[in-house]
Write a protein that binds this DNA or RNA. Structure first.
Lengths: 139, 139
DNA sequence: GCCACATCGTTAGACGGCAAATGACTAGGA
DNA sequence: TCCTAGTCATTTGCCGTCTAACGATGTGGC
């Protein structure tokens, strides 16, 4: 199995595990912090908009929204001008997580890149960006 | 959201998508190629051994093995000396995929790293390895 | 020789993710 | 005005992944 794909895949699993336990501390499941981040950025977004922002399909957002609304992180409301649209609105509980969750995420990033020199970190971002671009074009 | 974690996460989604469509060409689902690779390396491995090799939990391997045996890629057989153990054995169909799948995977790696200079590729591997190590220690 | 403990695989249930099918509503053209 | 085509969200069903609970088999100490 090719070097880079293999290493990237292993790294993904590790980061996934770390993010999972970090977010569980705030009562969230993996990925729900991203959905919240979209609403912190623009409260009242539609599932489609959020899906596009998260690079995920709409059904995924719909399912997550259902669960998150069940635990009181957000509410669903139809748009008053266009009834096809649904808008997701943060509850106080959802808003309250912004500070802690963003701090948690920054902390994780720091811990995980702690062993990199400033130069290595820069090179990593450049190279990974190229891979991301190449991959996106192929998709 | 932190730079690196965000970029890595987006890259993961893209690579996942590419691997998915690449493997579907051979009738496989994402990840099943890794399980097969473990058996190509050592046919007759146990679910636990494979799980360790793939950095995945045993139940995950068990489920995948059930599906893959249903489509005739491998068979289950209990170990004759220790009945607690189950060993997974490749069928001809499973063995036949080795060449094509490995080629497919190499091809994907090349396409995705095509824009990197040799130096960038080396730096990427070094930096990502450090991240992987730091992450593993935190887990 | 028997029984408690360790080691495996399996099952159950939850979640994120995807594709395809469905349903509700809007908008635009004849 | 009405009907068709387009746009959304949702549902359904599958896969990979995890944790926790369960069940079966070996092993070692007494």
């Amino acid at each position: 199995m090719p070097e880079f794909l293999d290493l990237h895949s292993r790294t993904t699993k590790v980061l996934r595990g770390l993010a999972e336990t970090a977010m569980r501390r705030h009562g969230l499941h993996q990925g729900q912090d991203h959905l919240l981040a979209a609403l912190w950025e623009r409260d009242g977004s539609t599932p489609g908009e959020i899906a596009a922002a998260l690079h995920v399909t709409t059904p995924t957002v719909v399912k997550m929204a259902t669960r998150m609304s069940a635990v009181g992180l957000l509410t669903r409301r139809r748009d008053e001008h266009d009834s096809r649209l649904v808008r997701l609105w943060l509850t106080d509980a959802g808003r309250a997580l912004q500070g802690p969750v963003e701090a948690e995420r920054r902390s994780l990033e720091e811990k995980v890149t702690a062993d990199l020199t400033e130069d290595e970190r820069r090179q990593l971002m450049i190279a990974l960006t190229k891979v991301y671009k190449s991959g996106s074009d192929l998709l």
